[in-house]
């Protein structure tokens, strides 16, 4: 079995998110790191391998600028055998649909039996890239998976987080599965794995190398129009009720809730 894991370089969680007023897009400057959700996807791949399935290769795949190489190094330090870096100026400004198309084209060259990815990225938080990729690859797609078992070497039995409890779903491979952070606890990369990360093969590819049609990607190939994005308004201060007489305080709180039809 060959597993490809889609990974993404995102702004570090400690960096406050903001809209860049000059572009109207998310400001992705500052410290960056591998998307934390993707580390769960890599761990899931490692656990499939360690669970006894015949996993011949785990390949980390990303699309992003030159700096995204660091995210790939982290991915291989966490266990991937090699990585593929799709990078091309023509891809800048791609929306989710265009990015999904470009990733699918890159994955086609790898012919994976299973594509894993984090259910959301820490920056855009669209939750949709897995479904877009699956559509292009004509594979079944499951999102928000929190348990994953390989059955008979060709099928996956997944538990998918639902609003109440979870759904158990069985899918045939090849498939595209996005995982939630409840699926596992990712391991720490050992010093040896970190120091060896640069020695693992990294395949840098441009849009043309994987047959991406230039009018399907980049700003021109994207349907999303960035409008007048603004940061969300700051939360109001709330109302503080001083507790002088508890009976009275309870009455006040009940009245407040009742007024807002919350009872």
């Amino acid at each position: 079995m060959k597993i490809c894991v889609l990974v993404k370089e995102v702004p570090d969680a400690a960096v406050e998110k903001r809209i860049d007023p000059s572009t109207g897009r998310l400001d992705r400057s500052g410290e960056r790191n591998l998307n934390p959700y993707d580390t769960h996807a890599i761990e899931a791949a490692m656990q499939i391998r360690e669970g006894g399935s015949d996993v011949e290769e785990i390949v980390a795949v990303t699309m992003g600028p030159e700096s995204a190489v660091r995210a790939l190094h982290k991915a291989v330090s966490l266990g991937a055998d090699r990585s593929v870096h799709l990078s091309d100026d023509s891809l800048a400004g791609s929306d989710v649909a265009a990015t999904g198309y470009a990733l699918a084209k890159t994955l086609q060259r790898e012919s994976p039996d299973l594509v894993l990815l984090g259910q959301q990225s820490d920056d855009g938080e669209c939750y949709t890239i897995g479904a877009v990729v699956a559509d292009h690859l004509q594979m079944p797609s499951l999102t928000q998976v929190i348990k994953l078992d390989v059955e008979d070497g060709a099928k996956l039995r997944c538990e998918r987080q639902a609003e109440y409890g979870y759904d158990t779903v069985s899918v045939e491979m090849p498939a595209v599965i996005s995982v939630g952070d409840a699926i596992n606890e990712p391991r720490y990369p050992s010093l040896k794995a970190i120091m060896g990360a640069k020695k693992k093969p990294l395949d840098a590819v441009a849009a043309g190398d994987v047959g991406i049609e230039s009018d399907h990607v980049g700003e021109a190939g994207s349907q999303v129009q960035c409008g007048d994005f603004k940061p969300p308004p700051e939360k109001a201060g709330g109302e503080i009720i001083e507790d002088e007489d508890t009976d009275e305080t309870v009455e006040k709180i009940v009245a407040w809730l009742d007024e807002r039809k919350l009872l």
């Binding site: 990369p189 010093l191 970190i194």
Partner: peptide, 8 residues
Amino acid sequence: DEQKAITE
């Protein structure tokens, strides 16, 4: 890069 990854 390695020192960054290690300290992280």
